[in-house]
Simulated assay, not measured.
Amino acid sequence: MKGSILDYQPDSRSGVISGEDGQRYQFDASQWQGSDEISAGRSIDFVANGDKAESIYPDKAAVSNTASTKKIAAALLAFFLGAFGAHKFYLGYTKQGIIMLVVFLLGFIMLGLPSIVIGIIAFVEFVIYLTKSDDEFDRIYVQGVRPWF
């Protein structure tokens, strides 16, 4: 059955799944069959056994579609507006976005050298984003916290 994780508590290693049938199912982290971390809002496939969920697998199609969309948008922002940190803001890395924006704008005072470096960093990140697979991009930049390269 398909569903999504409504809540997950890492300390108790348990959570709640909302099934496509409208029912809620309790689950234990030992039933997780994915290689990545469990997170709320995630689309999954599972086997319902009474009010318990078993054999829980991440829905790869849902991950790939979301990751692909975010990856393409982040790459385009890095290419066209990367010097302003737009791709950092888009991925939720506000602090790094502000750093890029400030260094780029203030870089003109120092003969433009810092601005050129920020532009190069943005271009390198554009290339890195495009060379990562959708799942890898999602794991590293969306679910994980890796703000630089």
Rank of each mutant, 00 (worst) to 15 (best):
K2D: 02
K2F: 02
L6M: 08
L6A: 12
D11W: 07
R13A: 14
G15M: 03
V16C: 03
V16G: 03
V16I: 15
S18P: 05
E20F: 07
G22I: 04
Y25F: 07
Q26R: 15
Q33C: 14
G34I: 12
G34P: 07
D36F: 12
D36S: 15
E37Y: 04
S39E: 10
G41R: 05
R42E: 06
R42C: 04
S43I: 02
S43W: 00
I44F: 02
D45Q: 10
F46P: 02
V47H: 12
A48N: 10
G50N: 11
D59R: 07
D59Q: 08
K60C: 00
S64K: 10
N65V: 09
T66I: 12
T66V: 13
A67T: 03
A67Y: 01
K71S: 11
A74L: 02
A74Q: 09
A74I: 10
A74W: 00
A74S: 14
A75C: 08
L77I: 08
L77D: 00
A78D: 08
F79I: 13
F79Y: 14
F80P: 10
F80Q: 14
L81W: 11
F84N: 00
F84S: 05
G85W: 03
G85Q: 00
G85K: 02
H87P: 07
F89P: 09
F89D: 09
F89T: 09
F89N: 02
F89H: 09
F89R: 10
Y90V: 10
G92W: 14
T94K: 02
T94W: 15
K95G: 11
K95Y: 12
Q96L: 07
G97Y: 04
I98R: 09
M100R: 01
M100D: 02
M100H: 10
V103W: 03
F104G: 01
L105I: 12
L106G: 09
L106I: 03
I109V: 11
I109D: 11
I109Q: 14
M110C: 15
L111D: 09
G112P: 05
G112V: 04
L113F: 14
L113G: 07
L113K: 04
L113R: 12
P114T: 09
P114Q: 00
V117H: 00
V117N: 00
I118K: 00
I118E: 02
G119S: 04
I121L: 15
I121P: 01
F123N: 10
F123T: 08
V124M: 08
V124N: 03
V124C: 11
F126N: 08
V127S: 13
D134Y: 11
D134K: 12
D135M: 13
D138G: 04
I140Q: 05
Y141F: 15
V142W: 01
V142Y: 09
G144S: 06
V145H: 15
P147K: 01
W148Y: 10
F149K: 04
